[in-house]
Design a binder for these strands. Sequence first.
DNA 1: TGACATTAAATGTATGTACATTATATTTGC
DNA 2: GCAAATATAATGTACATACATTTAATGTCA
Lengths: 151, 151
Amino acid sequence: MRIEDEIKQPIFRDEHQKAFINLIYTAGWLQLRQAAAFKPFGLTSPQFNILRILRGQHPLPATVALLIDRMLDKTSNASRIVDRLEEKKLVTRTVCPANRRAVDIRITKAGLDLLDQVEQTGVLYTKENMALNEDEMRQLNALLDKMRTVE
Amino acid sequence: MRIEDEIKQPIFRDEHQKAFINLIYTAGWLQLRQAAAFKPFGLTSPQFNILRILRGQHPLPATVALLIDRMLDKTSNASRIVDRLEEKKLVTRTVCPANRRAVDIRITKAGLDLLDQVEQTGVLYTKENMALNEDEMRQLNALLDKMRTVE
DNA sequence: TGACATTAAATGTATGTACATTATATTTGC
DNA sequence: GCAAATATAATGTACATACATTTAATGTCA
C-alpha cells in the first residue's frame, strides 16, 4: 500500500516531505514485525541487539561504552537494558579489574543459546520481511547513506 | 558516512540485512534531528504530529480513534499524548454530545499559533535535513512503498 | 601530594511505546 | 425493554528513549 493510503493523507507538500514520512513509517513497520518475532523468546529489539554485540565480542567482555558505540540507537540507555538481560541471566556484569570505573559485560551460555534459537526461526532481516530484490536493496542502501550526508 | 562506519560493523550478511539496519538507523537519525527542532518549542514529535492532524480537521473536532487512524505510529497511546497537549492548553477535550463514549478534541488558538511558529523556522522535512534531490526522493519513496508489499 | 578535571557507569525524571484491562456508553437481538 | 455484545476512551504495567545529574575511579599537574 502506498504511504498516501497507509496514513490517509492524499497530498504531500513535496517528495521530501513524503520521503521523510515514508521512511519513518516504514522503519516503524519493520520494527513492529521484528519485535513480534522476538516476543516468543521474551526479548525486546534493543535487548536482542545488545546480545548480538556481546556475541561479536565473545569471549572478550564489552563495556557499556562499547555497547553504546555499536548500538543503532546511541541515545538509548544501555545500562538499563543490560539490567534486564542480567536479570534473565543472559549476561554477566563484573567490575573491570584493570579499570574499576568500567564494567565488563559478557554473554552467558544461555544468552548464546537464545540467540541461536531466535536466528534458527529465520525471521531476521530476510526477504520475507522486505519485498525488494538484491539490486533494489543496493539502491536503497546507497540512497540512505547519501541522505545522511548533510552538514 | 556509510552505515558500515556509523555502527562500526564492517561486514553484513547480505544487502537485505544491511538495508534493514540502514533503514532503522536512518529513521532514528532523522527523528533525532526533528526532535531537536521541536525542543525549543516544548514539543515532542508525537505531540507535533497530533497538533498537525487537529489543524487538518479544524474547526471540526477529532476523536481519539481518528487520531490513531492518522498517526504514523498507530500503536502509540494517543490518549496520553493528548493529556500533555491539554495540560499545555494547546488542545481542548469535551465529551462528544452526539456520542458520549467519544471525546471531541480541538486545537486551540495557542496550538495553531505554535504550529505556525515551528513551521516558520523551516526545519521540517526540508532539503537541509535530507541530502537527496527530487528524483532520488522519488526513487526512495518507490522503494519504501514496494518494500512493504509482503504477505 | 592534593586540588581539580576527566572518565565511566548508574540513577532520576519526563515522555513515549506496546499491549492488556477496565469503565462507560451505545447498539443489537430476543 | 433488557441482557449481551460492541464501541470508545482511559488506565495499568513493563520497557525504552532522551537527557540531566550523581557517584566513584582515574588522570593531571602545580
